[in-house]
Simulated assay, not measured.
Amino acid sequence: MNSNIKISFIGSGNMALSLIKGLIASGFPATNIIATDPNESKRQSISQTLGIACLEDNASAVAQSDIVVLAIKPQVLQNVCTEVGGAMQQKNPLIISVAAGVRATDIVRWLGGKVAVVRCMPNTPAMIQSGATGLYANEFVSEEQKSQAENILRAVGITVWVKTESDLDTVTAVSGSGPAYYFLFMEAMQKAAQGMGLSEQAARILTIQTAFGAAKMALESSEDCAQLRRNVTSPNGTTEKAIQSFESNRLEDIVAEAMMCAKLRAETLADELSDCPPPKKLEQH
């Protein structure tokens, strides 16, 4: 990415700081990064620690920037967009939103005009540069801007583009909420192992390392997950018995139902956060 570009982060929470640290680690100049925060002591700490400018005034940061990353709570996004809309018109920057659940169409309306918006759905492992992020670009985003957005989010993990904004609700159900699913499964495995006699420490490290190793194999293998599972499932062996138990208890259906619940909730939250929700569908009789 062009090192002359100036990027501002509106908000300096964990996700914003992770992205900033990732950009600096990748070689992007800290002097071309601005963050904002209402807390003076936090602004001073960020500036001293990361070597970036940290301002109180959002509009001032936007007016200086080619790319603006909206990294604030969804509930305050409308107010912030209204606040910076006028300043944004000076440079017409690319807007990257990591605010969960707020549609690009709402961001465009709140900012005013034809605004290039990329919506992102990162997940919490982005905080350790192991994230998985879904990206959606509205019709005003150029190919160059798509590349810029991708480079920023790649600083904290892998990225995947989706074709429609509604696909981000599915991304939320897969990777956005997904870490919690794996934590729950690991929690259950650890409890079961302890119940069978292993110490808490042994059960924990064996469970976590097994999850890590399986994920690493899946990432690096040319085979899909189904084949990898078959590779370690010997006929009439221990793994087969466990798999049969999962299948008889409808694990696949349980996962599908849980993910659909997450997707539907993402859709509902987007409607709640919008000041102009889509009309409800008429029931078919």
Results as ranks from 00 to 15, higher is better:
residue 2 N to C: 03
residue 3 S to I: 06
residue 3 S to D: 09
residue 6 K to G: 04
residue 9 F to I: 02
residue 13 G to Y: 07
residue 17 L to Q: 13
residue 19 L to M: 14
residue 22 G to P: 00
residue 27 G to K: 07
residue 34 I to L: 08
residue 40 E to R: 12
residue 40 E to I: 12
residue 44 Q to N: 11
residue 50 L to D: 05
residue 53 A to W: 01
residue 54 C to N: 01
residue 55 L to I: 09
residue 55 L to T: 05
residue 59 A to T: 08
residue 62 V to S: 00
residue 67 I to E: 00
residue 70 L to M: 12
residue 75 Q to C: 08
residue 76 V to R: 02
residue 79 N to H: 13
residue 80 V to C: 03
residue 83 E to M: 08
residue 84 V to T: 02
residue 86 G to F: 06
residue 87 A to K: 03
residue 90 Q to Y: 09
residue 94 L to C: 04
residue 95 I to M: 03
residue 96 I to H: 00
residue 98 V to Y: 09
residue 100 A to L: 09
residue 101 G to T: 10
residue 102 V to P: 00
residue 103 R to H: 07
residue 105 T to V: 14
residue 106 D to E: 15
residue 108 V to Q: 10
residue 108 V to G: 01
residue 109 R to Y: 09
residue 112 G to D: 11
residue 112 G to E: 10
residue 113 G to M: 09
residue 114 K to G: 06
residue 114 K to L: 11
residue 114 K to E: 14
residue 116 A to V: 07
residue 117 V to L: 07
residue 118 V to I: 15
residue 119 R to C: 14
residue 121 M to Y: 03
residue 123 N to P: 07
residue 124 T to W: 04
residue 124 T to K: 05
residue 130 S to Q: 14
residue 130 S to W: 06
residue 133 T to S: 15
residue 134 G to Y: 00
residue 134 G to I: 00
residue 134 G to S: 05
residue 135 L to S: 02
residue 138 N to G: 07
residue 141 V to T: 01
residue 141 V to Q: 02
residue 142 S to Y: 11
residue 143 E to G: 05
residue 147 S to E: 14
residue 148 Q to N: 13
residue 149 A to Y: 01
residue 150 E to D: 13
residue 150 E to H: 06
residue 151 N to D: 11
residue 152 I to V: 14
residue 152 I to H: 02
residue 154 R to G: 09
residue 158 I to P: 02
residue 159 T to W: 09
residue 161 W to A: 05
residue 164 T to Q: 14
residue 168 L to M: 15
residue 169 D to C: 10
residue 170 T to D: 03
residue 171 V to S: 02
residue 171 V to E: 02
residue 178 G to L: 11
residue 178 G to V: 04
residue 181 Y to K: 06
residue 187 E to R: 04
residue 187 E to T: 14
residue 193 A to D: 12
residue 196 M to Q: 13
residue 197 G to V: 06
residue 198 L to A: 09
residue 201 Q to F: 06
residue 203 A to C: 12
residue 206 L to V: 10
residue 210 T to F: 01
residue 210 T to H: 03
residue 211 A to Y: 08
residue 214 A to C: 13
residue 215 A to W: 06
residue 215 A to R: 05
residue 217 M to V: 07
residue 219 L to Y: 06
residue 219 L to M: 13
residue 224 D to Y: 06
residue 224 D to F: 10
residue 226 A to P: 01
residue 229 R to E: 08
residue 229 R to M: 09
residue 230 R to F: 09
residue 231 N to G: 05
residue 232 V to A: 01
residue 235 P to H: 04
residue 238 T to Q: 04
residue 246 F to R: 05
residue 247 E to I: 11
residue 248 S to H: 10
residue 250 R to Q: 15
residue 254 I to A: 12
residue 256 A to C: 11
residue 256 A to P: 01
residue 258 A to S: 10
residue 263 K to E: 08
residue 265 R to V: 05
residue 266 A to R: 01
residue 266 A to E: 01
residue 267 E to S: 14
residue 267 E to H: 04
residue 269 L to H: 02
residue 269 L to C: 07
residue 273 L to C: 07
residue 277 P to Y: 11
